[in-house]
Nucleic acid binder design. Structure first.
Lengths: 137, 137
DNA sequence: TAATAATCTACTAATTTTATAGGGTTTGAG
DNA sequence: CTCAAACCCTATAAAATTAGTAGATTATTA
């Protein structure tokens, strides 16, 4: 299941991407518009900022804004930051590889090959979809 | 992330699919061979049986066995039984549809369209992969 | 029929993840 | 200086996950 963290994060990102100018938007504004718990959204935006997807400005007139053009933000990076690895098992993860402790030989593991296929197709979709694409709905 | 329940379930299924004959295999045998906690495996095999993927036989010489030919068992049914819906969000699920309570219009939801794409590609893979394919690793 | 081997059922429990809530601190604009 | 906003830290309730324990039930075989 997709976590609400990721869902809310994507919604917030598209909200920002739809802005005409790049002036900061307050958390409360996004929270109200997208029906997201304010404090939860706060922590989500913070992790997006720490991972260089968003910039922020403090004080009066402050808020969050996109650091890059929507068309330059691939969903791979959004998903990795919010949801974690694209793969469903660590042993097929490209960026977060980890050996399974119950598997003697992962080349002979049935789960491994299936999940590798799944990873490839998911990766393909996430790579070819940018934030700009999501705004066209 | 893929739950261990699903991972273990798939391993058990492939173990059974690799058997020459269809005589019952004891839980303990699979448990040892695949490094799976016996009692956990027991509950997994039980849900597989309740969902018509496995048959069981009690008493001496008993155990679990496949009800169908490996080539006739699609991964869609295995995944649905063990892991739940294929979709990552209920609002794009074909078999378990549910409306999001935070979404006024799901046709305008950016997450929705992305997840629908993902569901399609996952479904494609699971539909075209059978237990027999997984045994060839 | 009695012993045995296996599944089946029902609790319990530790751990982790998820989804928030509260409150104080820091920064920057006017 | 004042105020508004992001920032940061802590806590927590609920749910899911991953088991472990104890015993009941059923079927086979000798």
């Amino acid at each position: 299941m997709l976590s609400k963290k990721t869902k809310y994060g994507i919604k917030a990102l598209t909200y920002l991407a739809r802005q005409k100018d790049k002036s900061p938007v307050q958390i409360a504004t996004i929270s109200k518009s997208e029906n997201i718990s304010l404090k939860f959204l706060e922590s989500i935006l913070l992790t997006l900022r720490k991972n260089d997807l968003l910039g922020s400005k403090k004080g009066k007139g402050g808020g969050y804004y996109l650091l890059h053009e929507p068309k330059d933000i691939q969903m791979t990076s959004v998903m990795r930051v919010l949801e974690g690895p694209i793969s469903m098992v660590p042993c097929v993860s490209l960026n977060f590889y980890e050996k399974c402790d119950d598997c003697p030989d992962e080349n002979k593991c049935a789960v491994h090959s299936l999940m590798a296929q799944l990873r490839d197709s998911s990766l393909e979709i996430f790579k070819n979809t940018t934030l700009a694409d999501l705004c066209r709905c």
